[in-house]
Design a binder for these strands. Structure first.
Lengths: 334, 334
DNA sequence: CTGAAAGCGCTTACAG
DNA sequence: CTGAAAGCGCTTACAG
């Protein structure tokens, strides 16, 4: 590849001048400027990002850490991230962490050595102290999707209110025996959805029936047996609030296999609005999350942090953006 | 961050020596070696990848180009890519191209400036001459998922045979009026699946009925109307071969909405075995593709190309790896 | 076996 | 307005 020196010789100037023209940071005589531009064009020159990065200490690269890109929503978040990164001249490195701290630590080490400018973290867990440390070391970090009240910039939704409103909707439509398919307890998003469920029942004077609470035992598919067992026990609910769409889909299958009709016998309400939800039979009623927007806004915030980093040293408090969810009623609820 | 010079001073040697110890490429007195290692450890030093890359002309970075990471299979391919990249010390840059040549071109330009070592391309189209050029310029390129008989290394499946066998299976099970939900014609994978369908009919002396061929008009959802129209026309098929699972899912919904039962009245067979396929009702019979393996093998091949690049200059012919598919029979076929 | 020096390709004070 | 020089943090012939 052709370098700045070649361009300089071709244009009959020094490489300093070429650099100046290209950066546009200081005035260059219009005549020489044109000469340089011509040379750049004719030689089809574009500057080496590595060398520039080494010099200025910025690489225009960000890292996206997800538990696994294969999980329903992360591809959409990733698209939001990648789109706005690209539009701002940034490149994104994809990191699957598999919720393995060691993998994540090694990635962080490698990415630091590579002078990655900032991190978007979707893989936060209660014990993610290495992420907190990263933030404390001064690296720009933005959390999204998973969040634990840390003083770190984040883009989130209000899981509690979304669940509360969803369950209130079910109650308003006449459901009284509302079961819940509850996800992994260590994720605060599920805990908050659970609290929303409980409080919605309480606000409506519906007693909480512990038998209607299904806790995930071993992956999403565990809700198949859980739902079957619940129904076989004779304790048939009139609705199930699933804390995620994949859970809802499994629940639907179990309900049907028990000979019940959806939504006539039992309503099912999901959470997330993944792509499949509109396509399945019956189309799933669910709580929609703005995944793309989350990725996109997180990236905008991150880039702002990166750009601020050089400038003023004054500490800016992290801001937590809360995005709206929307209740989408399709055919799985009556 | 701490650099090699600091380590050298700390250990009382020159930075050349530190570099030698760390690279392990030439012998260093065991004593000094230990001193250096100790310094490295105590200072928690790890070398700057940018600087190394600038010097040796390799960055241990690869690019993954996909039409959109949001599309069903690409997250799985991406996981295969990322896993094996990580295990080999490589980092992957995610590029969504949206099948937009301009986006792809700009990415390529940027990635070249960044000295990206190689490219895994899932976004190949008939007119992707910029990818062919990339290959001709000597950059390591491996294609997967989409392939057009170019002399470029690739990891593919045999779409023709897979479709042929799938349709033969339907015929063996007694189906005679087999419709097809045909995807975008510009993608050779769909064309080959179509050919497999046609030839399977012919080999079994079943006349091809043009009325049973549904061509995608405007996205996956267009198969809803297409299927409805087909059924309403009185020309009811006894099976539908969908050239992808999302199409199958839409077809299933349309069939049901017309009052027909699956698989009793009409069987539906998909292609791809996306995650949702096992979860929907009825669980979908489909052709399984080894997406993870495709990503993983493509990455292994790419890394091999990258490593060969420096060494011998002799031209090595590209090799096309064909991975096995498997017919997965669930409940949507009788 | 090890150090000094050159160089990868840039940017940016520093002179003039 | 522009060039020479230093330096970002490495690696690697070249001496010794």
């Amino acid at each position: 590849m052709i370098n700045i020196k070649t361009v300089a010789q071709y244009a009959g100037v020094s490489s300093s001048t070429v650099s100046r023209v290209l950066s546009g940071k200081s005035y260059v005589n219009e005549n020489t400027r044109q000469r340089v531009l011509k040379a750049v064009k004719e030689l089809n020159y574009s500057p080496n990002t590595l060398a520039k990065g080494l010099k200025i200490g910025r690489t225009n690269t960000i890292a996206l850490m997800v538990p696994s890109i294969e999980n329903q929503m992360f591809p959409i978040v990733a698209r939001g991230v990648e789109d706005t990164a690209r539009k701002n001249g940034f490149t994104v490195i994809l990191c699957n962490t598999y919720e393995d701290i060691e993998v994540e630590r090694q990635y962080i080490k490698k990415l630091k050595n590579r002078w990655t400018d900032g991190f978007i973290v979707c893989s936060m867990l209660p014990n993610s102290d290495h992420i907190r440390q990263l933030k404390n070391e001064g690296f720009p970090v933005v959390l999204t999707s998973r969040y634990y009240d840390d003083p770190i910039d984040a883009v989130v939704i209000d899981n509690y209110s979304a669940a509360y409103n969803a369950v209130c909707y079910l109650i308003k439509r006449g459901h009284k025996r509302i079961a819940i398919a509850m996800g992994r307890k260590e994720l605060s998003l599920y805990r908050k959805r659970f609290e929303g469920y409980i409080d919605a029942l309480k606000s409506n004077n519906i007693p909480v029936d512990k038998n209607l609470i299904m806790y995930e035992t071993d992956g999403t598919n565990s809700f198949y047996d859980l739902t079957r067992d619940l129904i076989k026990s004779g304790n048939v609910p009139d609705a199930v609030f699933a804390t995620s769409d994949p859970k809802a889909i499994v629940v639907i299958r179990a309900i049907r296999d028990c000979g019940f009709k959806i939504p006539d016998d039992i309503s099912v309400l999901g959470f997330d609005n993944i792509e499949m939800s509109a396509l399945i039979d019956p189309p799933l009623s669910t709580v929609g999350q703005p995944f793309y927007e989350m990725g996109s806004l997180a990236t905008k915030k991150l880039i702002r942090l990166i750009e601020q980093k050089g400038k003023n040293k004054e500490h800016i408090d992290p801001v937590i953006d809360v995005l709206d969810t929307n209740l989408i009623i399709r055919k799985s609820t009556r």
